[in-house]
Design a protein around this nucleic acid. Structure first.
Lengths: 227, 227, 227, 227
DNA sequence: TATGAATGAGGCTTCATTCAT
DNA sequence: AATGAATGAAGCCTCATTCAT
């Protein structure tokens, strides 16, 4: 109700009466959109409240302040990603296939999680201050590293992988193009056109990037997609 | 010699006269810092003015408004990167060395241009709207693509490079880890510790990433750093 | 009796509770003064706020922005005039007397509504943009036209009025001197002195103007005040 | 050059070298437009300067400040009107025709001098303060009063005019509808539609208003346009 | 649990004007 | 006669937040 001259558009509430969890979820969903869209300082509590099924006052009631809300949003998207990683099962695959699977899944997961990407960008703009303060950090992302380590160990045991293959480094590499592909779409397109973002070209990039990783990790792997 | 009277540059102006270009440069330098540090909405015109050698009023005099200033800052960092790319000379090197050089130089350039990285992140948060509006876009970054194309052409001519080597795709790949390495340092560190950001580890990552690119592009290249 | 406890009006609210409507009314009253005195661009929100019993912030809270406030002020004065017109009852008078009554009442209403006059002048400076945007326009001023039409119809039925008597044209004529008399007092006085604005002379002008209208409308009417 | 971010559109000067009078005229012409369009506080010195063939600094050089410029503009439009009144010659006409001519000429003059109308409105918003301060006041508008007086005198001498016909009052009446017709066009249209502003209807209004004046002033005049 | 009303602080921007040559 | 650069003051408005029930 702030700004906008006492609009007559009174809040139309849906009929679910008082369900605190639902209200909180609703707030979080809207806030995720807004923070992802405009950043921490760019997002606007009034706007978030307006799009919510409840009132501005409730945001403060449940989340304390803007930064508190932002933190919960951040934790939410990290939690989502982690859950999607947990679903990935490569235990039964032989090392090369498992690695290929991990790369492709990571690429796709990033492509399908634009909110996560944007919020991570935003958090990096803020030097990771809020993530570091959060208590989700300890349990963050071990999952994917564990998987990579397990695959690397098996690969090396079977003399398939080079000894220099390191789970953390691989994660860094795989994340880099998976993340950059989404995060820098706007400026990359502005500079070089949108050609690489077509569906077809994205598939090619995924294939080539995967083959590149395999060529670096797997002894004698021929990156056939580069021929 | 070389230690005589202060350089004769900037002769034309008598000494008591204000120097508009210097004022503008000063504003731009401070604004670059501030926008890089806090983003478009997070940066504060009062704060920028305070750190400046001139007044808030002059910012509006020379740049119109906050967005105008931000645009010039953006153009400035893109221009800087481009100029650094223009200095790179790989024409005399044989293809494999040239490509190695390009990858390493790109990695280093990003590592040494944190303002550029942050402003590009910020611009992506804004969906590239300001970059697209700018008239520097057309002449953006052709330089690096041209160089990659020339090297790829030579590499393929000499049967050294695989036919699938594509300049734009390579640029996308090389940029991805070069950029991500800097842009996501904060969250990556929060999740996985700061080990990979040590000077030593950064050198290793650069080497391995370079070798990985070469393994993908160059026929029969052995990524020895991965052993 | 009649001197008992303070009037029971405004019962519903407990006494410690703020009264938003009163706050809005207070803002509107002050704003009407200020806009009438200085125009849209000339009026000053800080000044309005200062004279108010509340704060500048509340102006924005209730009215959105300066233009929003101005619009409400405009609607307010138009509403007042309309209400005063609605009170005018000429249904029982014979046509000539009724018309005389309407002219005199219009003249007096304008003389007694300097805020209305000034705000209409100001709105005309703005080409009527805000009035046109307002949704009060449709129901504007039908009242006075209806009354004139009814009187004209009766007058013509009784062969008292000339056939050329037209309600809208008459309203235009009657309004013109009623309005101009107030709106252009300053410049008219500067050019020709203040003599016509004395109480006595104003009465004469009203009488002569009324007689003039009647002489035009009523068959054989002798404008005796002009003798 | 203020605001608008250092546009590259440098002033293109016409080739007349230094002609102070022409420069002043040019400034006055633009300023008349701008003050008429936006009022005293609404007009903008930067904007005036921009539309001028010279610079903002020259406005201050020649006119001192914004109010000084406004005063000269005001004097300019009053001067124009007066000059047009001086051209009006009714000395040779018989009283009734002369009066008819004066009314019609006044009506037309107002219709054709929108800048004058708007500036007079604006000056009234400012309570005539600037007009009163100006030294053109003394010689203001005597001309038209003189003419009306002369015609009234002749009319009464010939027993054509009623004794109550007074030049100043007539001028007040004639001005009122002539002025109001233009000044309140915007709000009148918003309230009652634009029908009376068609070319045809304007001619009718002029005729009827003239006849109305004559019916009031001239013994036994039949306002035939009202039949 | 919920809320309409209220707000201090500070944000961005514009203005008429003057400086220094 | 002319001017590009500079500016203090003040304008409008928005923000995250709290009050009082």
């Amino acid at each position: 109700m702030d700004g906008g001259a006492q609009s007559p558009a009174k809040k139309r509430k849906t009929s679910w009466k008082k369900d605190p969890e639902a209200v909180k979820e609703n707030i979080l969903a809207i806030a995720t959109e807004e923070f992802a869209a405009h950043g921490l300082s760019g997002a606007n509590i009034n706007e978030i409240a307006r799009k919510t099924s409840t009132s501005k006052r409730m945001i403060y009631y449940y989340f304390g302040d803007k930064e508190g809300l932002y933190c919960k949003v951040l934790e939410g998207v990290y939690g989502s990603l982690r859950r999607s990683e947990d679903l990935l099962d490569v235990a039964g695959l032989e090392p090369v296939e498992a690695l290929r699977r991990l790369v492709e899944a990571t690429f796709d997961a990033h492509a399908n999680a634009p909110h996560f990407i944007r919020l991570v960008m935003i958090e990096n703009i803020h030097n990771g201050d809020y993530l570091r303060k959060s208590d989700i950090v300890p349990k963050l992302n071990r999952s994917i590293i564990d998987k990579l380590e397990e695959v690397c160990a098996r690969g090396k045991d079977q003399r398939l992988f080079r000894e220099g293959a390191d789970a953390l480094e691989l994660h860094w590499l795989i994340s880099s193009f998976s993340f950059y592909n989404v995060s820098n779409k706007a400026t990359f397109s502005a500079s070089f056109g949108t050609s690489i973002y077509s569906k077809v070209h994205q598939a090619i990039l995924k294939k080539k990037a995967t083959d590149m990783i395999l060529a670096a990790v797997v002894n004698g792997h021929e990156p056939s997609s580069w021929n």
